[in-house]
């Protein structure tokens, strides 16, 4: 599949933003463990909303006909893309309601509104994963691990980002202790990533594309002289050595370096930048390496 930069930015940045939102809200309920003053809380919420909004706006850049985008909220009964849009728009009034509840003194309502925001953020992450995971035409994606990856990587980058956001608090609050949740999710993330890489769900052959049971099929002629929409959209070819290099780069940047930095140093922002950059590379590979079955009708033997 063609790795569209707008979609890569969207999934990584809104994932990190939603993760940060979730962890900030959870942390706000346990002041005895995580000391966070009000200013830091609002800064963290602000960063989360800016990242999420930037991501969502970037996702509209790949639409060829943006004026009809408003209809995308209508088919939430069947379409994961539509569901994602509905939940994304629902997030803002829910966050506003929660902030209002905290401010206006209805403290008894706060846990209720907070759970709503967290559930909505998780739903957005899950729907984003299911947009890709529900497609039987792309065997590489068509597994439960795709939505799991989106949720876990969102929570992971959010946790790393939350550690950085905590470092914004005033000096008198004291130093940050080892961010265990970020470390746990970084470990979980790398395990899930390796599981995803090792298990290829299903394979289709050029013979099954034409229903040929005996013998072998090869393409004589693809029927067009230059590129088509299909070759442009689905014909992306990644050199193997380049894929190898990027794979290790993404593993190092997204998981290993942030883990080391968070566990043994105070360089929280550096860890965040590495984690986000690594996830961008990982997301680029997610698209670049996925192969659509229509490639069988363009002469590829196995997808």
């Amino acid at each position: 599949m063609k790795p569209a930069l707008s979609v890569i930015f969207f999934t990584v940045f809104s994932g990190a933003g939603l993760g940060l939102l979730i962890w900030t809200l959870i942390a706000s309920t346990m002041p005895q463990h995580i000391r966070m003053d009000a200013a830091t809380f609002y800064k963290a919420i602000g960063i989360a909303l800016v990242l999420t909004t930037a991501g969502l706006l970037s996702s509209t850049l790949h639409l060829a006909n943006r004026k009809n985008a408003v209809y995308a909220l209508t088919r939430w009964k069947t379409s994961w893309l539509s569901r994602e849009g509905v939940f994304a728009l629902l997030l803002y009034p829910l966050v506003a309601a929660h902030l209002f509840v905290i401010h206006s003194g209805y403290a008894s309502l706060a846990p209720f509104t907070m759970l709503k925001v967290i559930a909505c953020a998780l739903a957005i992450l899950f729907c984003t994963g299911m947009i890709y995971g529900c497609l039987p035409t792309v065997p590489r994606w068509n597994t439960w691990m795709t939505p799991a990856k989106y949720v876990v990587f969102g929570l992971m980058s959010g946790a790393v980002l939350f550690t950085s956001a905590l470092s914004l608090r005033p000096v008198e609050v004291g130093p940050i202790r080892t961010p265990m949740m970020a470390l746990v999710f970084l470990a979980l993330g790398i395990v899930l990533y390796f599981a995803y890489l090792l298990r290829y769900p299903r394979a289709h052959t050029i013979e099954s594309a034409l229903g040929v049971k005996q013998g072998r099929v090869r393409m004589l002629d693809v029927g067009h002289s230059h590129g088509t929409f299909l070759t442009h959209e689905f014909g992306f070819q990644l050199a193997r050595d380049k894929a190898h290099l990027l794979r290790w780069l993404s593993i190092l940047w997204a998981f290993v370096i942030p883990f080391a930095l968070l566990a043994w140093s105070q360089w929280y922002w550096v860890a965040t930048v590495f984690c986000i950059a690594g996830l961008l590379v990982e997301r680029w590979l997610f698209f670049a390496e996925a192969q659509h079955v229509v490639r069988l009708y363009h002469g590829q033997r196995v997808v």
Partner: peptide
């Protein structure tokens, strides 16, 4: 599109 079945 044009294909060739071989070996059947």
């Amino acid at each position: 599109r044009h294909f060739e079945i071989e070996g059947d």
